[in-house]
Amino acid sequence: MTMTTPVQKERHPLVELQGVTKVYGRGTAAMQALRGIDLRIDEGEFVAVMGPSGSGKSTCMNILGCLDTPTEGKYLFKDVEVGTLNRNQRALLRRHQLGFVFQGFNLLNRTSALENVELPLIYRGIKAEERRSRAGRALAAVGLSDWEHHTPGELSGGQQQRVAIARAIVTEPAVLLADEPTGNLDTARSIEIMELLTAFNRNLGITIIMVTHEQEMAQFAGRVVQFRDGLVWADKSNAEVY
């Protein structure tokens, strides 16, 4: 990836971690999950985060998603230092800029797919009519038009993850953060999800940061960041994809 290539539009940094550490617990029980992460991701990138279990991938994603706060270091989102924001400002950042897809889906129980997808739009204060049509379109984009009124309990794992993705992209966020979105799915479903994410990245320009264990899924990304023992151990662009 070269910044000077004329056909490629100029990249702006979207998120930047500077010396981020995270310690869980205190005293003798203290556990250092991140040991000083420096990471910059630009607008429009599709990044896969890989690494062994326990290497701090989820911890890093939660910090990027403003769900958790770093122990030390700086997190810049669009040049704003997140550490200086208060709870409400971080909530508003999540509401307007971020979409998060969890390994465990985290859908509201006993709540229809449509209402789950509508939820972020309600908090954005979008009127009922527009809300319904946008949620409907997001579900259509993940191929679940016929399942709008089914609750998570009535959907398969792959379908639930697609509802979760629809919920994350319905607001057209600047970044979509996905922590092992295919971790609970078989290969065929996983590839479907990857194709969806790739399409959102290409067509809507949504920056995607995705944790995965599987090489096959990482292939869909333009760049692979390797974690090991709470540090970024390797950071390479994915030549095959570009």
């Binding site: 909530a91 508003l92 950042l93 509401r95 954005r124």
Partner: peptide, 19 residues
Amino acid sequence: TERTREIGIRLAIGALERE
């Protein structure tokens, strides 16, 4: 327990504490 998870989901989506 269930409601705490529900609250977590709402907060993650961008709900304010007061909402």
